[in-house]
């Protein structure tokens, strides 16, 4: 186990370097001259003066060989300098830290919903196995997995914003505005949680200690909270990590629809606007965040009881 963990940790460095390399080359090979694009942003109404263009090219060093440019960019990263946004002129790090807050708030709200929904419904589903409730819950879970999150988002906006007017449809004014997008994210990601909790509980229920507890006269709910929950905690945490990864990736489209100023929306608009420093920096940041979450998942997974691991395998 130790060996696996050490191995995974050692893998981090080359992985991160490769991520940086990929993020850089995607933007490097994008069509269009960055100097011209930057010049356009700095001077939208001016023409393309060749002398000015040459000046910008020099400034950005875009005539240097690929590796030199990559090294320069990489060296910047090491000192925390990701360059400045072409569009706004602000440092990329500043833009990132301003926006990551919204993405994290949204992801954690989504996680909260997915945990609450997942554990409650999973418990009910297991407790009333093969009853109509179980069947109904399982049916809704599989349906939920088949509905795209943006459809759910539009549908919720229609119901809760335009019809009932409970929530504002756009932008972030107060924490209340995280409920709808968070619920959408949570719902789209909760199916796996429900299934995991259900299968794990069923697995646990069949084991000896539950039988003993039952003999001792503990109620099912007491058994769940005193015994089962702690045994399935690790797989839940592991799946929470997996969900977090998919939420950070999936929040993009939700941020887009609900107009939350998170990193996803900003990255897409930067890619579209050919704001290279932002695109490269944000792609890199995405990669690094996810690599570390994945590392965390792998490590936690190592501690999961092999018996429980079996039931978790299907979902993680």
């Amino acid at each position: 186990m130790k060996k696996i963990i050490i191995n995974r940790v050692l893998m981090i460095l080359p992985t991160v370097i490769t991520i940086a390399f990929l993020a850089f080359s995607i933007m490097y090979f994008s069509p269009g001259n960055p100097a011209e694009i930057l010049m356009r942003y700095r001077n939208p109404e001016g023409g393309t003066d060749p002398a000015a263009l040459a000046h910008y090219e020099e400034m950005l060093g875009i005539n240097d060989p690929f590796l030199t440019q990559f090294e320069n960019w990489g060296a910047g990263i090491l000192t925390g300098d990701f360059g400045e946004s072409f569009k706004t002129g602000n440092p990329v790090t500043e833009e990132f830290f301003y926006r990551i807050g919204y993405t994290l708030m949204l992801s954690f709200t989504g996680l909260a919903f997915s945990l609450v929904i997942g554990i409650t419904l999973g418990f009910l589903s297991a407790e009333f196995k093969d009853s109509w409730l179980d069947n109904l819950l399982r049916f809704t879970q599989s349906l939920k997995m088949s509905i795209p999150s943006f459809w759910l988002a539009l549908f919720f906006i229609y119901i809760f914003s335009t019809q009932l007017r409970w929530f504002s449809a756009f932008g972030y004014n107060s924490p209340k505005d995280l409920i709808l997008p968070g619920l959408v994210l949570g719902l789209s990601n909760s199916s796996r949680m429900v299934r995991l909790v259900r299968t794990c509980i069923l697995e646990e229920k069949g084991s000896g200690y539950v039988y003993t507890a039952r003999v001792k006269g503990l109620s099912e709910i007491q058994i769940f909270f005193k015994h089962i929950l702690k045994n399935i905690t690790l797989p839940i945490i592991t799946l929470t990590g997996v969900s977090l990864v998919s939420m950070i990736g999936g929040s993009l489209i939700i941020e887009n629809i609900f107009g939350l100023p998170g990193i996803g929306t900003y990255l897409v608009s930067a890619i579209v606007a050919k704001d290279y420093p932002v695109s490269m920096g944000f792609l890199f940041a995405y990669g690094v965040i996810i690599v570390f979450i994945n590392l965390f998942i792998d490590i936690v997974y190592q501690f999961v009881d092999p018996r429980v691991r079996d039931c978790a395998n299907a979902e993680i």
Partner: peptide, 14 residues
């Protein structure tokens, strides 16, 4: 590991 580090939608858009 490297491929899994990029969310599909975002990598696809890039």
């Amino acid at each position: 590991n490297v491929f899994q580090a990029f969310p599909t939608t975002i990598a696809a858009i890039a």
